[in-house]
Amino acid sequence: MAQAIDTTYENAVARRRNLRKLWLAFLLFPAMAILLTFVFLPMASAVWYSVYDWDGLVRGEFVGLANFQEVLFDARNNKFLINAFFNNVKVFIALMIVQNGLALTLALLLAREPKGYRFYQIAFFLPVILSTVIIGFQWKLFLNPIFGLVNTLLRNVGLGDWAMPWLGLPETALGSMILVNAWHWVGFPTLVFLAAIHRIPKDLIEAARLDGASEWMIARDIIWPLMAPAVTIIVVLTFIGSFNWFEIPYIMGGLEGAPAYSTDMLGLLFYRTAFGSVSAGNSDFGTGSALAVLIFIFIFTFSTIATRYLTSREVELS
């Protein structure tokens, strides 16, 4: 008799557990369906496309890794690939220093809650919510060598010699775009850093202050290591953003990375290769997809390694 009761009890528990699993599956279904349709499927299809020969948009025969070979080793393509890749690298390094460095400085300043810091916080964040397309066009106008605000200002303050066709010179075009991007996005890492700094218990800062640490030492020895999780996020996002950089260079320098490919990016190269452009030639889905797959593998691998490495130096705030 006792045994019988036991089994019923166990059955009931098991039934309940199954029901819960079913319920969880039901709740997960919409998210999984969306993920599958809009993330995994396109990724899989890019891999699929990349192993076929394409005549424009018509799929030809299976060619194995020939498209990859063409992208990586064909002299016609790989000089663009190398050029674009190193431009992306430059963008990443420059954004790390300029955008994130500035964001860290701003966050450290704002964390001390100077007069009107709420205003500054909003002011720095405002460009982030603006559309990248609008910002690209707006800055293209600002940087216009003749009518642009930047050169007009420089001339008005007696720095006319500095007035330059910023987007027209291979030496200044990429730098200008990087600064525009920094202007656009600096509020985001600032906010993330600021939140991370606010999460650090005030006591720790005060303890360090009593220990005799200067503001700089407090920033270096206490705040910086304790905001590691935020730094991880920002570094990885900056990395991904830098290697997927598209809108700003597309709007401000065009599909060909003008002038003279000095602002060419992997994203632009992919677009030109896969979809073609009015003057640059016809679309080729095969090599385009191969390039997309390579970019994906590169970004995925490096951001995974970076995340692992950076996470290992994080400390939980108890």
Binding site: L143, N144, P145, I146, W166, G168, L169
Partner: peptide
Amino acid sequence: PQGYEGVDYAT
């Protein structure tokens, strides 16, 4: 124009 390197079609 001065700064012709940066002069675009609209300009």
